[in-house]
Design a protein around this nucleic acid. Structure first.
Lengths: 228, 228
DNA sequence: GTCTATATAGGGATAGAC
DNA sequence: GTCTATCCCTATATAGAC
């Protein structure tokens, strides 16, 4: 994979428009607008505004009037893209998880050596969350406010990401490259450190820690903990 | 300090009533009820319900009508304890930070040896968050929904807790017991792992990981990362 | 496909009885 | 010190014009 964050960005070349285009195609049944170029352009603004407003004061506190004002669309117009307010969370979350899982696999599967593979996983997660900070933050913070069924989906999706880490660690242990640690628990605390990167972004900026520095820190931590 | 979680609980002997008694005394100017035994009893129920309801679906989504029904008090009666809904967050958060900081210092300051002192900090944080899980979870999740001024207070309070970890690590480096790591960054990621304990409590329960197992895991991680 | 106007419900907060 | 009744506002969601 790419050597640093800037190369990763170029390699992935993931624009807001492209993200929303895929999101539109996945949810064509739900969205009443049929012309792709119209729908995608509006979705970009709707989601952009949702993330900004909700990450500021919480999703519940953001009224659809606030949202429509911020994204430059009328209140009635919004309802051509969603059936109700909660659809917005679901839309954003589901696509985020899908994208994360796919990207994690794309950059880890080609790497055979366990230690490098784990590092690739660490970097991919950090890089992607750096690129889509607001998206990740929103998904994390609003997960608990979902209705039962969708909450379970969200928990399951989170677990799927964690399982990618778990599998790498297990594989490393089986290959004798890693010590015989508790792989599940190791994956969990690694995940906690990965998530802190987007949850406390401001703090790390104040510390002058950039994403590659943070990645190196986690690599060293895991190396020391886990290498045979 | 105590050897395990159960001994810690006995040593600290912190009941809901005692927590709310102190909270009442600190906020006597704000609370209109003057008889301590009356006020404390009601505060216990109010806060208990607030934590349960807000941790379920978010603080904004919890109406004061829900709250009054849950805690068995009338809507009008509630307003003798708070001036407005946001007071509830502030009340809970401020006292939580105070209690955490005091408890952390109480159990770490007597320990001179850096490695043991760091372990004492780890265990105290985990134990306290185990004892007051709902409280910690609430404080974390609702911090971002506070108005500017109070949000800054919350960030500062969080930093004060992190600084306790930072100071211990710095001290260990100065004493030559720890490697010359980035102390600030080390404290930050340690904090992330400590917080994951109360943020993902359900996950760890499903893994059959109890608080002392988790504490040992973090001790080993930090040992391997930081020992000279 | 997007708008304005509006229906309907439920929110926070207060007044004043007990 | 606690309750009931109520004020007033803003929320989500929809109807129907353009």
């Amino acid at each position: 994979m790419a050597e640093d964050y800037e190369s990763f960005k170029l390699d992935l070349s993931l624009s807001k428009t492209e993200i929303c285009r895929e999101l539109f195609r996945e949810n064509a049944n739900l969205i009443r607008i049929k012309k792709e170029h119209v729908a995608v352009g509006n979705l970009v603004r709707i989601i952009d505004s949702t993330l900004r407003l909700a990450n500021g004061g919480g999703f519940q506190a953001m009224s659809l009037r606030d949202l429509s004002a911020d994204c430059g669309m009328s209140l009635g117009g919004l309802y051509a893209y969603i059936r109700n307010k909660d659809d917005l969370i679901h839309l954003i979350q589901r696509h985020g998880f899908k994208l994360t899982q796919r990207t994690m696999l794309r950059y880890t599967e080609p790497v055979a050596e366990p230690r490098e593979r784990l590092f690739a996983a660490i970097r991919t997660h950090l890089y992607l969350s750096e690129l889509m900070r607001a998206w990740f933050y929103f998904s994390y913070m609003e997960a608990k406010n979902l209705p039962q069924q969708e909450k379970r989906e969200a928990v399951a999706a989170e677990l799927a990401i964690e399982n990618i880490l778990y599998d790498i660690i297990e594989q490393g242990i089986a290959a004798g490259r890693f010590r015989d640690v508790n792989a599940r628990l190791s994956a969990s605390v690694l995940k906690a450190m990965l998530q802190d990167w987007y949850l406390k972004r401001g703090k790390y900026r104040r510390q002058n820690v950039d994403v590659d520095t943070y990645a190196q820190m986690l690599r060293e931590m895991m190396d020391r903990y886990i290498l045979a």
